[in-house]
């Protein structure tokens, strides 16, 4: 029910965005070589599809692999740093430093080491994604109810079981916040990587060429594709959250227990 309402909401916001866009073009008398109508942008996507499709696939790959690596690294670091306070004191400033480096300036040194392939883009995406994940995991684990941990200890639970049974589910809300922030950044990272560490064909370079040819509809169409990749990935992460945290939206579980 709530799922369907969310879907309807997303559809309506899509209609609003396209409507406002169309209105600006129509009532602002914007020339087609400055900015296209939504339909022109769509047409350009369809016309260039055979060329755009493999490039899109590459961007999706960079986004997904980079996100996977960044999320895994972020979670691992978050857990390590929360369990070892001394390691946290040493590592945390380094993490902040890593985020202070302008991401675009990261590309040239990466290219020197990793070349122009998929790897430097994945590293750039992971570089951006891991940070909000680490911070959210640290936050989530720091806010686990102390009394609940004490109760687990009174039951004689091992640290590992306590971690799985209490700490992970307690921190899941916070973790998903970090993952969703990471998901929206991931595609941005992939495009920056394509711009800064790309020799050949990529979505970012293709758009660059379209821009040089004053192909406004093409530029907007390619931006739409990039946006769709980012939103699709965010949606997938949100969907995983939806299905793994049923207690946030239901008052009754599907099953009382694992066995009955």
């Amino acid at each position: 029910m709530r799922f369907r309402r969310n879907l309807l909401g997303s559809f309506l916001s899509f209609v609003v965005v396209v409507g406002v866009w169309q209105a600006i073009i129509t009532f602002g008398h914007v020339a087609p070589y400055v900015a296209p109508t939504p339909l022109d942008a769509w047409r350009s996507i369809v016309e260039n599809w055979s060329h755009l499709w493999p490039l899109t696939l590459t961007t999706v790959k960079e986004t997904v692999f980079g996100f996977g690596a960044g999320a895994a690294l972020g979670m691992g670091l978050g857990v390590l740093l929360s369990k070892r306070r001394f390691v946290q004191r040493v590592i945390y400033p380094i993490l902040i430093l890593s985020q202070a480096i302008p991401i675009i300036a990261l590309a040239p040194p990466l290219v020197l080491v990793l070349g122009f392939g998929l790897t430097p883009k994945i590293v750039i995406v992971a570089w951006i994604v891991f940070f909000p994940v680490t911070v959210s995991v640290l936050d989530g684990l720091a806010n686990v109810d102390r009394d609940l941990l004490m109760l687990a200890r009174a039951y004689g639970a091992s640290p590992w079981r306590t971690f799985l049974a209490i700490e992970v589910p307690s921190a899941s809300s916070s973790l998903f916040s970090g993952l969703k922030i990471g998901a929206t950044y991931a595609v941005t990272g992939a495009i920056i990587g394509e711009l800064a560490a790309s020799s050949g064909s990529s979505l970012a370079m293709f758009q660059h060429a379209q821009s040089a040819q004053l192909d406004a509809a093409g530029v907007y169409g390619t931006t739409l594709i990039m946006t769709a990749v980012g939103m699709g990935w965010f949606g997938l992460v949100a969907l995983v959250e939806f299905f793994t945290t049923p207690w946030k939206r239901r008052s009754i579980a599907r099953r009382a227990g694992r066995h009955i």
């Binding site: 579980a253 009382a256 227990g257």
Partner: peptide, 16 residues
């Protein structure tokens, strides 16, 4: 909060 009533009742076994 993430476990059902029965899941909470069996928490001791879950933890050990």
């Amino acid at each position: 909060p993430w476990r059902s009533v029965l899941g909470n009742i069996t928490m001791g076994a879950h933890l050990t």
